[in-house]
Structures are given as structure tokens and as C-alpha cells.
Design a protein around this nucleic acid. Structure first.
Lengths: 206, 206
DNA sequence: CACCTTCCAAGTCAGTTGTATTGGAACCTT
DNA sequence: AAGGTTCCAATACAACTGACTTGGAAGGTG
């Protein structure tokens, strides 16, 4: 077999070129030629690695989800080098990681929004979200359960509801941050405010 | 002067045709020809009323904002025919009106998302949101202030923060509703849960 | 009635799009 | 070294886009 090329590596580079363009012009504004040019390759090469534009979009979606996931995990691992983190700390770092506080995350969110605006109209593109969110919610709820056991959260809270509220709240604040209604730092403050209310036993910990 | 045609009426009809298409195919998927066909007119007629596609998009954006605003006000007025509503009731009806609980509202939200996904990349399209949200937040905060005075909300709450949280929360829940993570009714329940927590003095009122 | 402005349908145009085709270079295997 | 497969650049193509031009119908006004 001739000419060995790392398919996956090329596809990832193309996906990242798409990423850069989609964050500025949206998914519809990203033509194959433009993505190829941004990736520094010819249209022919790009087409050799993706049979259709849809193929490229789907692959890039998965690739970007993986990157975001890896980034959050790295952040979580790096934030607590020695001391094991409390549920409060874990949640706070995780939620902050979803806010557009730095340029990298901000760009990633813009791409997610480009996919989101297509997913609300296309059931096929909704699948990744539909499958990925429940585990996250379960993890949130488990953290909250631990916090209740530690006496940091009132026992009468509905943890499944609180988990969903945390997620929705953070996303909503991101929305209004990107619309320039308030600064990203303000969104972070509001998440802290909400978390402080939830963790009444340690409301003094910011 | 010859041939009087109600310009505004024609423009509104075109805007509503755009609305129908954009909710299914997005703003980029709505070509002038398709909008004209949906409106039951020729491309030439459409172009007579809008100098450019951008013109049409901007007009439709304003028109749709007005419609949504009017619908919320009508709902508020109709929900309490005789008895003057409490702050809790007002907030609840208003927030419920922002959730995709019926097909009409759902379609409207899909159009808003189409505009939103463009606004996050185009500062010019951010202006309407940037200007429109603060008054809404102020109104929310005023309602909350009244509720505090009535002893329905704890005095140590940050009302500005709570107002923003309510808005962000509702938007975030709408997001996950449209992604099929949960049902619209579940989103409504979660809003009620949050409101019930906020209005501790009357947590029994659903 | 004659006139003139508004209105609008049809067609044209240059540009861009995703996809398909072609031809040959690169390179591993036998 | 021969052969066959992978790789990829160039080109072509049909479809569609937004914008523009043209010609004439509609219908008040003088």
C-alpha cells in the first residue's frame, strides 16, 4: 500500500481551520474553498479527506466536543494539584470553564453556537447534545449529593433540579455576555452568587 | 400621486414569510426568491419594498421584536382580568411566556435564535438586544423590590442579580428544551421551582 | 382625457457554492 | 524495477445567490 498519510491528523487540522472560520462567519459562511485556504491546503486535498461538506461538519463537531471536554478535565486536574477538591470547588471551576472568560473559550463557544443554531432545526445534529448532557447532569447531582451529606447544602433541595438550573443558568449568562449585555466577569460573579446561595452552609466562601 | 399601496403592510407580510422560512432553514437558508415565493409575490415585488437583503433582515428583526413584545403584554393583560396581579404572578406569567410551551412561541424563538447566532458575530445586530434587555431587568428588579416589601422575599437577596438570574435561567432552559434534553413542561417546572425558592414567604404557591 | 408617478413581473448578470472529473505525482509492495 | 494504490492539484459544471435593468401595467391627478 502506497503513501501513508495520517488521515486523522489531516482531518483534525481541517476541522480546526473550519473552527476558526465558523467562529467569525458561522457555519453557512464557511465554504469548502475558504476552509481549505485557511488550512493551507487545496480544495482537492480537502475533498479527499471529506466526502461531503456534511461529513466535515459532523467530524468537526465531534472533534470540537472532544477538545472542549479535554480542556475542562485538564482544568479540573490542574486546579487542585494536591488537596482533593470539595464539591463546591469542582462545580465552581467547571461552571467557570463554560463562561467566555478567555479568548480561547470564547471562540469555542462561538463555534458551539454556530452548531447549536443548526441543531435546533436539524434533529440529526441534536443527537450529540441529547446524549452528552445527561451524564454531566448526573455528575453535577452527585456532587450536590455529597455536599448535602457534608452539610453544605440544605437537605430539602431538589438536586436534579438544582443541577439543571446550574447548567441552564451558566448557558443563559453566556448568551447575554456574548450579546454585550454585561461583561464576562459579571457573569462569573452571578454564578458565584447563585452558588453561594445554594451552598448556604458555606456562603462565606467565594 | 398614483397607486397607493400600504408599504408597511406589505413589508410586514414579507417579514412574516421570512419568519416562517427562517424558523425552518435559518437566516442564511432564506433566499430572496424563497421568501418572495412564501409570501406569494414575485422577486421583483419583494425587491421593490426592500432595497437589499440586509434591509429586509433588519426590518423583520424589528417587526418580530414588536410582535413578541405585544404578545407578552397581551398575555399579561389577559391573565389577570380583574384582580391586580402580585409580583410573583407577573414574573411567572412573563417567564412562562418566554418558554417554548406552544408552537407559536416556539417558532418565534427559533427565529430569535437565527438572529442571535448572527448577532454574536456582528456588533450591528447586537444593538437591539443590548438596548432592550436593561429595561426588562429593571422591571424585574422593581417587581422583586415590591415582593421584598411585601415580605415574600428575604431582604438579603441581591435583586439586580436575581433579576438577571431569572432571565438567564429561562433562556438557558429554553436552549435545552430545543435541544430535546428535556420537555418544555419540565423547563416550566424548573422555573417554578426556582421562583418558589426565591419567594420563600410563599413557597407553597405554585 | 392626458400625464406622470408608483408599482411590479420578467429577465439578465457576475459571483459563489458543493460536487464531480481528470490526470499525474508519490510511494509502498512484490 | 514494475505495478498498483493512495494521494492530491486543477479544472469543469450545474445550481443558486443577491443585485440590477427593462418595460409596461395600474391608477390617481391635473
Amino acid at each position: 500500500m502506497p503513501k501513508r498519510v495520517d488521515h486523522e491528523a489531516v482531518r483534525q487540522e481541517i476541522a480546526e481551520a473550519l473552527w476558526r472560520i465558523a467562529s467569525q462567519r458561522g457555519l453557512d459562511g464557511a465554504s469548502l474553498r475558504e476552509v481549505a485556504h485557511e488550512a493551507g491546503i487545496s480544495l482537492g486535498r480537502l475533498q479527499h479527506y471529506f466526502a461531503s461538506k456534511d461529513d466535515m461538519l459532523v467530524f468537526a463537531s465531534n472533534h470540537i466536543s472532544e477538545l472542549a471536554d479535554r480542556q475542562i478535565r485538564a482544568r479540573l486536574a490542574g486546579a487542585f494539584p494536591d488537596r482533593p477538591p470539595t464539591p463546591y470547588e469542582l462545580l465552581r471551576v467547571c461552571l467557570r470553564g463554560m463562561l467566555p472568560l478567555d479568548d480561547n473559550t470564547r471562540t469555542g463557544i462561538l463555534v458551539q453556537i454556530a452548531y447549536f443554531s443548526r441543531a435546533v432545526r436539524d434533529a440529526r445534529m441534536r443527537e450529540p447534545a441529547r446524549k452528552g448532557i445527561p451524564p454531566l447532569l448526573t455528575w453535577f447531582a452527585e456532587l450536590l449529593r455529597t455536599a448535602v451529606d457534608r452539610g453544605e447544602i440544605a437537605a430539602d433541595r431538589d438536586l436534579g433540579a438544582e443541577a439543571m438550573l446550574l447548567l441552564a443558568l451558566t448557558d443563559g449568562l453566556t448568551t447575554y455576555t456574548l450579546l454585550d449585555v454585561h461583561e464576562a466577569e459579571r457573569a462569573a460573579e452571578l454564578v458565584d452568587y447563585h452558588l453561594g446561595r445554594l451552598f448556604q452552609g458555606r456562603a462565606d466562601t467565594h
